[in-house]
Computed example of a mutant assay.
Amino acid sequence: MKAPGFWYQPAGPLAALLSPLACLYALGARRRQAKAAPQGAGIPVICVGNLVAGGAGKTPVAQAVMRALRARGVQAHYLSRGYGGRLTGPLRVDPAEHCAADVGDEPLLLSRTAPAWISADRLAGARAARDGGAQALVMDDGFQNPALAKDLSLLVVDGGAGFGNGHVIPAGPLREPLADGLARARAVVIVGADRTGAAVQVAGLAPTLPILTARLVPDAAVAAGLAGRPVLAFAGIGRPGKFFDTCRELGLTMTEALPFPDHHPYAEAEIARLVDRASALGAVPLTTEKDWVRLPAAYQTAIKALPVVLAFDDPAALDRVLGTVS
C-alpha cells in the first residue's frame, strides 16, 4: 500500500474533510491503550516502533539495539509480528527453511544477525522466545500493541518525512496523536537529515525526551564494487526515494529508478523482466536488503543488494538510553 500524497503535504481541505474520522481513530487508539492490561514476558522487552503508517527505518535501529545488547553479553532475540508472511507463530525463523512469504521480509533479514521470532500474538511470541533462551527481546514494531509490556520504547522518525501533516489516519499518517505516543516513549531516533522539523515538534511536546540522531551508511565494499557501473535501482520499501537518494549520494549512475509498494511480493515473471531490462541497459540490478530477501530464489544471484548500517552521530547515545536494561 502506498501512502496518500496529501499525508506528507501541508494540511489542506482533504485533511480537514477527513478530520472527523481521524478524531474517531484517535479516540479508538486512546481507548485501546487505556483499557489494556499489558503482561510481562519475564525478560526485558525493548520496542523499536514509530508513529506513522509505513516505514521509518525501524529495522536498522532494531539491529543497532541488538548490537548494543550483544556487546554487553546479553543474549537478546528479535520479536516481530511477521507482517507479510503466511505463518502466524509463535516460531523461530530459520533462514534455511523459511522464506519471506512464510515469515515476512523483516524477520528473515533480522534472523541473519540474531535469533528472530514471529508471532501474531506478541505476548505468546515473547514467552516462546524466553523459553527458547532469550535473555531480552528487541521488538521490531509493535509500539501500538498494548498486550505485551515494554521496558523501553524507542520511536523512530524518518528525517525526510517526519510526522507528515501531523494528522491521524485517515487525515494523515499518524497511528495515534503525536503527544500520546511521545508520552510512552523513552527516546526518539531521527534517521537522516531532519528536513521537516521533527526534533522541534518533539521538543515542544516532550521537552525532556532524549532525541538521538543517526544516519544510514551503505556498505563500503559493495559501494566500491559498483563504482563506475550503471545500475538499475528498484525498491519496495516505505519510501523508495530514500534508497534512490542513497544511490545518488554514492555517485552511482542510475539508468532507471523503479519504485514498488512497501513489502511488495515480487513475482518471478516480474523479476525476470526487470533483470532482462537491466541487461539490455548494460546495468547492474540493485535493490535493498529488505527487497532482496523477498526476491524469487532463482533470481537472487542475479541481483545485487546494497546493505546499510545505522550510525549514530553520538556513538554513546544509544547506550545512555538503554541504561541498565539487560
Rank of each mutant, 00 (worst) to 15 (best):
L258F: 03
P240Y: 00
D245G: 05
F234S: 02
P259H: 10
V231F: 11
A272W: 01
G228V: 14
E249V: 00
E270D: 14
V284W: 00
G228M: 14
V231I: 10
G282E: 09
L252P: 06
L286A: 09
I271P: 01
V231W: 05
R229E: 05
F260D: 08
P261G: 10
D276W: 00
E256V: 00
F260V: 03
P285R: 09
S279C: 02
S279K: 12
I271N: 10
L232E: 06
C247H: 05
V284A: 02
I237F: 12
R277V: 01
G282S: 08
P261M: 11
G238N: 05
D245A: 15
E270F: 08
L232C: 04
L274K: 12
H264S: 09
A227Y: 04
F260N: 08
T253Y: 09
P259T: 03
A235F: 03
G228F: 14
P261K: 09
R273C: 10
L258S: 04
I271V: 15
E249R: 15
K242D: 03
A235C: 02
L258G: 05
P265R: 11
A272M: 04
Y266A: 01
R277W: 07
R239V: 04
P230I: 01
I237W: 09
L232D: 05
A233Y: 07
E270H: 07
G238R: 01
P259V: 04
G251Y: 12
A278C: 02
R229H: 12
M254L: 15
P285M: 13
G225M: 13
A272I: 06
L250R: 12
F234C: 02
M254T: 10
G282P: 08
G236Y: 02
V284I: 15
K242G: 15
T253E: 15
F243D: 12
C247T: 03
R229T: 14
L258C: 12
I237C: 06
G251N: 11
F243V: 10
T255S: 09
T246P: 07
L252W: 09
D262A: 02
E249H: 11
A269R: 13
M254D: 04
A257N: 11
P240C: 02
K242A: 08
